[in-house]
């Protein structure tokens, strides 16, 4: 009788492991912001991006603090925070959504998989739907997500003196996150 139970027990564990979903996370992901115009280079990088995703459902979240964006020029950084994104009032930006084709990614096999991410970006306190394509790369069993998308600055209620002149009307957001 005991002998019959043991294999069942192992089978149950194996079944549980196969169904278990894994949450991949990072606290030091990278997001670059680029709103350069022909007149002015406006670039910033944030290396403190918090992100999590679930391998089975494709559910994904990115959170970034506006004050963690660093510019080469301090004055530009101050203007970005005070005049444009008003980071004292709205300190955070967040994206919540899904990797819609997560099923096509084989997490056990190293390689680069094209992915589509859809969801809602909350920037400057304004929510907008965002959809973009990027890649999910598995290196040594660890995933890395890379993607670039554009946001129209006006869509997020960001107004300022120089928009459309010194600052591009569309900003490019590049995401690069390595997960554990």
């Amino acid at each position: 009788m005991k002998k019959a139970i043991l294999p069942l027990f192992f089978l149950a564990i194996a079944g549980f492991a196969a169904n278990a979903q894994k949450v991949y996370a990072t606290k030091n992901g990278q997001i670059k912001f680029n709103a350069s115009s022909p007149i002015e280079k406006i670039e910033a990088v944030n290396n403190q991006v918090d992100s999590k995703f679930v391998d089975k459902t494709g559910q994904i979240v990115f959170s970034a603090l506006i004050k963690s964006f660093k510019f080469e020029n301090q004055l530009m950084e101050d203007h970005f925070n005070e005049n444009y994104l008003e980071s004292s009032k709205i300190p955070k930006a967040e994206f919540r959504g899904f990797i819609s084709n997560i099923a096509s990614v084989d997490f056990t096999k190293d390689g680069k998989y094209p992915v589509t991410v859809e969801g809602t970006l909350n920037l400057h306190g304004v929510q907008q739907k965002v959809s973009t394509s990027g890649s999910l790369e598995i290196v040594g069993g660890k995933p890395m997500i890379v993607g670039v998308f554009k946001v129209k600055i006006k869509d997020y209620g960001i107004t300022g003196l120089y928009i459309g002149d010194k600052i591009a009307s569309e900003a490019e957001i590049s995401v690069n996150c390595k997960y554990e």
Binding site: K27, K67, P91
Partner: peptide, 13 residues
Amino acid sequence: GICTGYLSDVVLN
């Protein structure tokens, strides 16, 4: 450090 806010942790830069 400079406190930039709160995500999963309190963040200093």
